[in-house]
């Protein structure tokens, strides 16, 4: 039986992990390789690195991070943030990434997904989508949540799948950082529309929230940053808890 995945997300700025470097020893180092190694030992199923500034300088340090981590940590690595062209993706894959997530650029040019999937296979292409509810519509935002579009996410997920995305990383901006749980209704609505794996992101505060996203929300994987970085829970604790709740995980 396919295991549900737990994926820690590392936001990278200037070669350092920026979320939660202040609270625990492991984060005092703030070093992506150390954190990646730590999460791997704890049983993380994949890792996501997000370039939060997407500046030219940060891109260079991110490539070094990926190169370094991929020679030590042998689990799937996804890299995202500021991917604008096929060549950006190629550079990341050559540095050792297994998947690349595309967000804003796909909105202005949905064919970018097709282009990347054709060249490297759908399994490499993750469509990252940031969503906020406006009135009754879950609306897609771009540029790290700074720009609103008029696109309904229910339509958008079908477009990215048709264009060749292999997976969807869905972040609820309403829930992000709220610690009050993933948007289960949103997850369910999206799941009805797609036949590719769905990663839930935004809102994890308790281990019950992971259970809910994976069972009630029917997500294939959960992404979390704060609850792991700030040391509230370890990945091992999370997996033990999921297993107790009859969710298949890799131990």
């Amino acid at each position: 039986m396919l295991s549900k995945r737990i994926i820690p997300c590392l936001d990278i700025d200037n070669g350092r992990v920026v979320k939660g470097t202040k609270f625990l020893n492991i984060r005092d180092a703030g070093d992506p390789s150390e954190l990646a190694n730590f999460y791997n030992k704890e049983g993380a199923d994949e890792l996501v690195f997000l370039d939060i500034t997407a500046t030219h300088e940060n891109r260079k340090t991110l490539i070094d991070v990926v190169r370094n981590v991929s020679s030590q940590v042998f689990i799937p690595l996804t890299v995202g943030g500021g991917i604008r062209a096929l060549n950006d993706m190629k550079i990341m894959l050559e540095a050792g990434a297994d998947k690349v997530s595309i967000n804003s650029s796909a909105i202005s040019n949905p064919k970018l997904i097709t282009e990347c999937a054709k060249e490297f296979g759908s399994q490499c292409v993750v469509s990252a989508i940031d969503v906020k509810k406006i009135d009754t519509q879950w609306t897609v935002f771009t540029h790290g949540g700074r720009k609103v579009t008029d696109i309904d996410v229910i339509d958008w997920v079908q477009i990215v799948e048709e264009n060749g995305a292999g997976e969807i990383l869905l972040t609820s901006m309403d829930k992000d950082g709220s610690y009050d749980g993933y948007d289960l209704e949103l997850l369910n609505r999206i799941n009805e529309k797609i036949s590719i794996p769905l990663i839930a992101s935004g809102g994890a505060g308790k281990l019950e929230h992971l259970v809910d996203a994976l069972s009630v929300g029917n997500a294939d994987a959960v992404l979390a940053a704060s609850i792991f970085h700030y040391g509230e829970f370890s990945i091992k604790q999370a997996k033990d808890f999921l297993r107790k709740n009859k969710i298949q995980v890799r131990l």
Binding site: M1, S3, K4, R5, E167, P197
Partner: peptide, 19 residues
């Protein structure tokens, strides 16, 4: 196959950790 013998639907690709 997208379906098992009990007509349950499965996502393709088969992506992730399996025993």
């Amino acid at each position: 196959p997208e379906f098992d013998n009990n007509k349950n639907n499965y996502k393709i690709p088969h992506m992730g950790w399996n025993q």
